[in-house]
Nucleic acid binder design. Structure first.
Lengths: 169, 169
DNA sequence: GTCATGTGCTTCGGATTCGAAGCAAGTGCG
DNA sequence: CGCACTTGCTTCGAATCCGAAGCACATGAC
């Protein structure tokens, strides 16, 4: 290869660290969830998201969006959770085509049973290496990143508007 | 903000932001890789990891470890890459049971073709919302996290449930 | 040398994943 | 109302993923 403009080394560091850290963490957590509650990571995310809602319910689409999952994938998991009695799925009164997923008591129970261990893993793996201010900074920075990404054209929407070189407008 | 009653609120913020941001980023990048080079994310990671090595080679196990993937999963992907001529797989001269994966010229070419767009996505999604010092901090903090996780007992060593059965014998 | 154990990779089976296509309900407009 | 278009979810097929089991080489104890 000739020379490519040396991509910013620190940026790459940050990027790779982000990917690696999240992958490692995810794997560890996944294991814990499997052992403790027989849950996959997505399933846990779904339950946790529902638990976060005041009503304990969400529409399928919003749920899929929240956990960053495909719709068909969520259908699969929601059914699995329903079969196990951890959530219910009922058509919305407002929109007959919407399905509202709701956490059951059993679901809350499972969540409660799994959560402490979950936190323990986080403490051991993620927070053990960090000071309080590290955590604060991390939350602040990544929070900003997340918000930015959520705002930005979600999926396709490549630079469509772009005209050819020169006049931006 | 009231104090954190049960779990530390800031910690949870950081954790969720980490997971969400990495998920969103990964999806976006995945799309770009698919479009530009017909590569899955893992495949890209493998090529990139190999490209990072002075010799352009790595053992299967080290590779799997590096990209945080199962061994069987890597076997699958390595074969796919080999079929497409992007890597070669040869038994190691040292250890007859080791397989050394090596980047081919075609592999380097693909990597080169895909990389600029990859960086563009990162710029747009990840770095656009961050200042230089944010990036530095992020790299530093997450680097520390990653190192900590890499050191920590990878698999087992999870807090066994129940009591410790004292001496096994 | 030979056995027991450890290490490296693959195969196998089953579970999960996604996108595309399909179906049904909602909306805007004449 | 009828029609075109949108939106919400599911089904379908094919690809991918992982853990357990298996195979082959390597190493250490004796």
């Amino acid at each position: 290869m000739p020379d490519a403009p040396p991509p910013d080394a620190v940026q790459l560091d940050a990027y790779f660290a982000l990917i690696e850290a999240s992958s490692l963490l995810r794997h560890a957590v996944e294991q814990q969830l499997q052992d403790t509650g027989d849950l996959s990571y997505v399933q846990f995310q779904v339950l946790a998201t529902l638990g976060d809602s005041p009503t304990g319910s969400r529409r399928m689409t919003d749920l899929a969006d929240g956990v960053v999952y495909s719709r068909s994938g969520l259908t699969y998991q929601a059914k699995a959770l329903e079969t196990r009695g951890l959530v219910t799925r009922t058509p919305s009164p407002d929109d007959e085509r919407s399905i509202v997923v709701t956490l059951t008591d059993a679901g809350r129970g499972t969540l409660a049973r799994v959560f402490p261990g979950h936190l323990a893993v986080l403490d051991e793996l993620l927070f053990a290496a960090l000071s309080r201010s590290d955590v604060e900074r991390l939350a602040e920075i990544l929070g900003r990143v997340r918000d930015h990404m959520r705002q930005t054209p979600p999926r396709s929407a490549a630079p469509r508007r772009g005209k050819t070189p020169g006049a931006t407008a």
